[in-house]
Design a protein around this nucleic acid. Structure first.
Lengths: 355, 355
DNA sequence: TTGAAAGCGATACCAC
DNA sequence: GTGGTATCGCTTTCAA
């Protein structure tokens, strides 16, 4: 079979059956035009079942696969989505990456991944745009809305995931964004800790300038005020493990005015805080100090801790992203912002309960 | 400036400055040939500094970026590497992904990411090959060496990361692989636990068929035998958190023959085991039971636990991967296997010490 | 339904 | 050093 005259004609002198097989080769072997091969691989195209069959048979024999790059060049749709992330040590993000990549794949998209060391996003954008990605999802990265506009002009609309741009007053067209209702989450944390009868409630901030931190803190602060309480002490952890350790040491250093509760800007930091409280200060959580985190890290992350957290709903966030992508790419929709609710839950090693 | 005659000529009626700017447009504005534009962007090319300057100026004015897709079509080098992973909840892998992506980027490559639910790798390969990636790195996925050969034929050599194919006896050309010396790691664990005076040493396996598990267990078993000891009990965790919880419950259910030490096939599983021991059985680690894990998860993962582990050196593994990639792509090297040493370390919340 | 031919946006080879 | 031209592998008119 491999040495038949037809195969020979299709192949010429090539040795490696799979290498560089083009629609041209398939067309020759199937005795149809190259256009026919293209149509055979195009879902809605006008081909007789007969020719399609011939094409597919020939393709199988030759090990042919359509070249997505060539297709991209002409259709101007790469079916690649750039995903920009940093801080993969925060377990929330690998989880998001996993779900997002699966969702996109089921929609026929592929993920071009960029891990950045925070705020070097500008440099990375240039590289991204060269690859003609259909869209850009930015998680855990800040981006000016001016830059987002540039990307959209270059043909790659931007969706901010779990981030918002700073709203400049004169901002007419903010980029698309999917976020949790971080402010409501902050309020939830405030009510929970206040209801627990705590007197000295501390806050450990994430990145000062990030929208997530601003919103969470605002909700927390405002709700405490409403309840006649206030933030007793405050430190900054910058969303990093090490930063949170430092912040915890700082807040709990003076035994006299030691907080009896702390709202931490992310689960990732909350784990660091609980680690310090337990290992260095001999304090028990939640008996001696109540700790509330934020995000949605998997069980493997909190392990032996009892973790009270404001949970972001990853499922709905991914869903919203996919929907938004579709609207942007196939319906010419304008950028928009979607907000997903949070809820407070208590997790222990053996059970998880929503409150 | 934007309305100058030259700009007009270069642009025609386009409104969006950045959209669809090609080397053609730049050439016209710079009053040079399109070839010149191409050369201006090609590092070693033969261009006078004068023309290069003209080109770059024009490019900046138009917001031009070379189209990587078009370049790929003709050079047959996409500068994209497909990375296939599963199980991102095991913190070892996000860490690998982060380091790998950074290393590749500094070499001018980009990562096309595929998250698979284990062993559906066959389906994903078809998609990968359509994108003409320069190579494929497979981590946490099994792959037959036949498939690896197919990929190589299709122009995308495969590197297995932290995995080996089953060596069939008749296998002439195994695919490239970067692994730790898992067998030596197993031996280290055996010596450590034996030296600790433990009598009833258990083993919790990862995926039964995986090379990592086979090698780790073989080293562990053989070294114990050499020391006049043996595996007292064994269960399978399949490298998953839930699997390891079950395995732990199973091994520690009967109070009479309860193990006093356990070697767990991965840190990820070890965390699950310690969680069960502590929360469900009220046992302390390492006072009541010694636990040894394997891999290299970041501090945020083990938090409050004292984790004794056989550490895989991610840095050298990434380095080996990058080197191998270079050899494969630019020096026509044959597939080869590299093995990196492991070491036993003890990690506590406040310190990390190598033994 | 089908095939021929014109691109998509770059690189490579060729004379000059 | 420079510009013209063929080409990469495909999709897309446009006639037939």
């Amino acid at each position: 079979m491999a040495g038949s005259p037809v195969m020979k004609e299709a192949f010429g002198n090539f040795k490696n059956v799979n290498k560089n097989v083009t629609s041209q080769h398939v067309a020759r072997l199937a005795q149809v035009s190259q256009s026919a091969v293209s149509r055979a691989y195009t879902p809605g195209a006008s081909v007789s079942t007969h020719t399609r069959q011939r094409v597919m048979d020939a393709a199988r024999q030759l090990g042919y696969r359509p070249n997505a790059i060539a297709r991209t060049l002409i259709t101007k749709k790469s079916r690649m989505i750039a995903v920009v992330m940093s801080q993969l040590d925060n377990q929330f993000y690998p989880l998001v990456l996993e779900k997002l990549s699966q969702r996109l794949r089921s929609d026929g998209y592929h993920v071009l991944l960029f891990i950045t060391s925070r705020d070097e996003s500008d440099g990375v954008l240039a590289e991204i745009l060269q690859y003609q990605v259909d869209a850009i999802v930015m998680a855990s990265t800040v981006l000016s809305s001016a830059l987002a506009r540039d990307c959209a002009r270059a043909g790659s609309p931007v969706i901010l995931f779990n981030r918002m741009t700073k709203r400049a007053a004169n901002e007419d067209h903010p980029p698309s964004a999917v976020t949790s209702d971080n402010e409501a989450g902050g309020r939830l944390a405030a009510r929970h800790l206040h209801a627990g009868g705590h007197q000295r409630i501390a806050y450990i901030a994430g990145l000062e300038e990030s929208s997530t931190n601003l919103d969470r803190e605002r909700g927390f602060r405002d709700e405490l005020a409403l309840l006649g309480s206030r933030i007793h002490a405050r430190a900054v952890g910058n969303y990093s493990y090490e930063g949170a350790q430092l912040a915890a040491r700082q807040l709990f250093s003076s035994a006299s005015q030691r907080p009896d509760a702390v709202f931490v800007g992310s689960d990732h930091m909350a784990l660091a805080v609980m680690d310090v409280l337990r290992s260095e200060l001999g304090l028990r959580v939640p008996q001696d100090v109540s700790v509330v985190g934020f995000d949605n890290v998997p069980q493997a992350a909190w392990g032996a801790y009892q973790l009270t957290t404001i949970e972001q709903s990853i499922g709905p966030m991914i869903e919203a992203t996919a929907t938004m992508l579709h609207a942007l790419l196939h319906e010419g929709a304008q950028p928009s912002a979607v907000t997903v609710p949070c809820r407070l839950i208590v997790r222990t090693s053996s059970k998880t309960s929503a409150l």
